[in-house]
């Protein structure tokens, strides 16, 4: 099981606290909204919208260092393009992990 981390953000910020804080702030404000949108789209069952939601979250997954999670999201996004929900459960597990993590940063 992999866990989110701030390695990428730290590396990018290169010791500049304002950049680091800015990126963390964006994750903390945007991720809950994107998660909400995703579940709304799932409820509606509109595949292009779900795909769009997954695509947006995917970038944050990679920024938080979840390499396997990124692959899972990628596969799910690809399946959604084919109107297939395979990978939904694994993707939603990642959402839970990130939700927990961003409370700690």
């Amino acid at each position: 099981m992999e866990f989110p981390n701030l390695e990428y953000i730290n590396q990018l910020a290169g010791g500049d606290a304002s950049i680091k804080n800015k990126l963390i702030h964006i994750i903390k404000t945007e991720f809950p909204e994107e998660k909400k949108e995703y579940y709304k789209s799932i409820k509606l069952g509109v595949f292009p919208r779900i795909e769009e939601n997954v695509h947006r979250v995917k970038h944050k997954i990679s920024i938080l260092g979840l390499t396997k999670g990124y692959e899972i999201a990628n596969t799910f996004e690809y399946n959604l393009r084919k109107l297939n929900l395979n990978g939904k459960e694994d993707f939603e597990k990642i959402l839970i992990v990130i939700t927990q993590y961003i409370k700690t940063i």
Binding site: L12, K22, L23, I63
Partner: peptide, 13 residues
């Protein structure tokens, strides 16, 4: 369209 991506790009630039 992603704010995060724009901030990262600006940082790199």
């Amino acid at each position: 369209d992603e704010k995060m991506a724009r901030v990262i790009l600006k940082t790199l630039c």
